[in-house]
Design a protein around this nucleic acid. Structure first.
Lengths: 142, 142
DNA sequence: CTTGACCTTCCACTGTGCTGGAACCCTTAC
DNA sequence: GTAAGGGTTCCAGCACAGTGGAAGGTCAAG
């Protein structure tokens, strides 16, 4: 099957499929006489795996490594479990930061209630955002 | 004061200060005869505001716009409140996605318990990540 | 023989907030 | 005069997962 059909069947854009190949997430398929990529059905399974792994929050680099283990003849299960645990920690941290930010936003909301724009000292730009309490919390990333 | 002193006093790297100027977050200061940036004390306040606004999760572009209002003689308070509300919504969504991801990770953890690597069909790469239920949840971004 | 759909490669760009480095100028002390 | 320690500009790149577009090759139908 050509790349367009694979794209349709897997619901992954052809452009992305080529990108995955470049990253090593998808093995280079054989080519037709004309130089077109020619996939077999396992490519559909593979893309399904990639989607499942992304849904679990793995990066393409991690997914590539998992696949490399499998291609090297090693069942990657324990490696995958370790990745999932790692990810679970990261997610917990992210949730914690976001919750802290949520609290900060609530505080600012409260604070805004008590402010008359006319009282606002232009030097502070806007007192609604006046910094106050303890450790500064940066917005969570990723 | 020169940029280095401002950097020390505000705890923002000189490089970052120049970057903020380029973005329009900091007004271009006057220059010394030798071409050095020469700041007054208001620059320290301004950087304090930027940090507070970042702590509330605003982007530099949003911060720039808030500052532009203030420089245009308009008290930006109501605009800021709107931004904070917007941000609060985004944060709530992010927390929801991360929690969904957390549940998915727990599910996979459970699932992994019942799997013997030897049973794993290489076609699926690793059954620990076998997709299962309904809507696929992508990892939260930002 | 040409049109159109499909495929190929390659390079650049997106958003976000910086950071690093090169090559060069200014100021002060020695 | 020269060295150190500021400062200046501009260009490049980081992570991340793609996306857009140009220039061109392949293949089947009309």
């Amino acid at each position: 099957m050509l790349i367009g059909e694979l794209a349709n069947r897997s619901d992954v854009p052809a452009k992305t499929i080529r990108y995955y190949e470049e990253l090593g997430v998808l093995p280079p398929p054989r080519r037709t006489a004309g130089g077109y990529r020619d996939y077999d059905d396992t490519a559909v399974d593979r893309l399904g795996f990639v989607r499942a792994a992304q849904a679990a929050g793995l990066t393409l680099a991690q997914i590539r490594d998992v696949i490399a283990l499998r291609e090297g003849g090693i069942a990657p299960c324990s490696h995958v479990v370790a990745l999932l645990n790692e990810k679970a920690e990261v997610v917990a941290d992210q949730i914690a930061s976001l919750r802290a930010l949520q609290r900060e936003l609530e505080r600012l909301h409260e604070q805004a209630r008590g402010i008359d724009p006319a009282d606002c000292d232009p030097r502070s730009v806007c007192e609604v955002l006046a910094p106050r309490p303890g450790p500064v919390v940066r917005a969570a990333k990723e």
